[in-house]
Amino acid sequence: MTLFQKSNIKSLVLKNKAVRSATWEGGADADGIPSDKQINLYKELAEGETGLIITGYIVPCTDGRQTPGQMMLKDEAAVEVYRKLTDAVHASGAKIAGQLVHCGGQSSERMAGRKPLAPSAVEAPQYSAVPEELSTEEIIRIKSAFAETARFCKEAGFDAVQLHAAHGYLMNQFLSPALNKRTDQYGGTLENRARFMLEVLAEVKISAGADFPVMVKLNGSDNLEGGLDIEDAVQAAVLLEKAGADAIEISAGTPASGKDGAPVRTGVKAGAGEAYNLEYAKRIRAAVSLPLMTVGGYRSYGECLRALEAGMDFVSLSRPLIKEPSIIKRWESGNTAPSDCISCNGCFKPGLKDGLIRCVINK
């Protein structure tokens, strides 16, 4: 088993098993259009031999926005600009997937232009305020927005999309018993709590076409009392496979999960806490046969191989690729020294300050 083996997700052929997990870059303008500097960041990742690059989270509608510089693709006018991004990636032989997310109760009222929307109007540590409960009509509107943005992604040259159902965002909020207190068809049993995610998947596949790969990022656990646990996550993965998802990336945690939180967990170094979601991914591997990606603290080539040997099809990295965009190319050349990323999370601060993430330790 090798990380550099050619692999497939449906009809999508990838040069290797290395994935850049979705990472917010902070480089988009007020309309959600990526800057030239942000496009160049993707170009560097592709030149560094990352096989599949998953973008930072793209919102399909304004009321799902969370952070400054977040990308948005909600109309035809943006398609040609996004094509510059996909062309830059394809020029170096890599593939690119657009990650689609509505931030739900974790949206920013300032960015979204309204009070955040969520499955239920509950107070929760990960919410800055009690959100408004989504009406059935609003659920229908948001599902349609996902489907339309997936179609725009295909028109813009993306090779796939990934639906973000992890890290406390809207799909994950529906899945969570702690956050979803609905008594209609979207609440109660796991099948009902998964309904929104599965309906979005179905509408996206219709809108973008049956041949267009649709992946899902799923929490193996919210790492929160009362939240989504591994037993429900396994069943959710089974439902996703039955519904036609083409791959699943396993993560865990929310911003309220403390030391086991996501997406910016701290204190992970090579040999110290790597592969912290692998056990969840192995439980899900035993229940489904579709391609699985595992993300969570990969810093060394050896740990990547261990994940593949444990049954994973792909290994996803994020912060090591901020520090060293060409680490996959270096490993393939024979220099398999681990990443010296220390998970200080300083890389995200420049994005908030002047528009693009970068490693603050690199000279």
Rank of each mutant, 00 (worst) to 15 (best):
V214W: 00
M293H: 07
P125R: 09
T62S: 07
L308S: 12
A208F: 02
K282G: 03
D211I: 00
A121V: 12
L12K: 06
K17V: 12
D222F: 08
I142C: 04
V161R: 01
N223W: 06
A160K: 05
C103N: 12
E332V: 07
F348P: 01
G261F: 03
A208R: 02
K329G: 01
Y301A: 07
D222R: 10
I33E: 13
S207A: 15
I357Y: 03
D36L: 01
P177L: 13
L278P: 07
P34Y: 11
Q5N: 08
L308A: 11
L175K: 02
D87V: 05
K154N: 12
P119S: 14
I39K: 11
M293C: 13
L170C: 07
G244H: 00
A166G: 07
N223Q: 14
K259H: 10
V89K: 06
K363M: 10
Q162A: 04
R195P: 04
M171I: 15
K329N: 03
F158A: 10
A256D: 12
V89N: 04
K84W: 08
A310Q: 13
I206M: 13
A275W: 00
I54P: 00
I250W: 00
K37D: 15
N180P: 09
L100P: 00
M1N: 12
F348S: 15
G296W: 02
P60Y: 04
Q162Y: 08
S135K: 14
V288G: 09
K74Q: 04
A287E: 15
E132P: 07
V288H: 06
R285E: 13
E324T: 15
G355H: 03
D354S: 09
E309A: 14
L278V: 10
T50D: 08
P177T: 13
R151D: 06
T2W: 03
A129L: 13
P34Q: 12
C344F: 07
M171S: 12
F4I: 00
G355E: 08
N192T: 11
F158P: 08
A121N: 05
S92I: 01
L45S: 06
A94P: 06
S144P: 04
G261V: 11
K43P: 05
R114V: 15
N219P: 03
T23L: 09
P263R: 00
S107F: 04
M1H: 11
P119D: 13
R151I: 01
I230M: 10
V214T: 14
T183Q: 12
S11C: 09
G334E: 10
G98P: 01
P263E: 03
A22P: 02
G113Q: 13
A337W: 01
S221K: 04
I284H: 02
L305S: 00
A247Y: 06
A160R: 05
Y280W: 09
S251D: 10
R283C: 14
D211G: 07
V101T: 15
E279Q: 13
K6G: 07
G227V: 11
F348Y: 13
N180Y: 10
G48T: 05
V13S: 15
A237W: 02
R358M: 12
I322Y: 03
G48I: 01
S128I: 09
Q66W: 06
E274Y: 11
K323W: 09
I39G: 04
Q99W: 03
G273Y: 01
A256Q: 00
S318Q: 10
S107K: 01
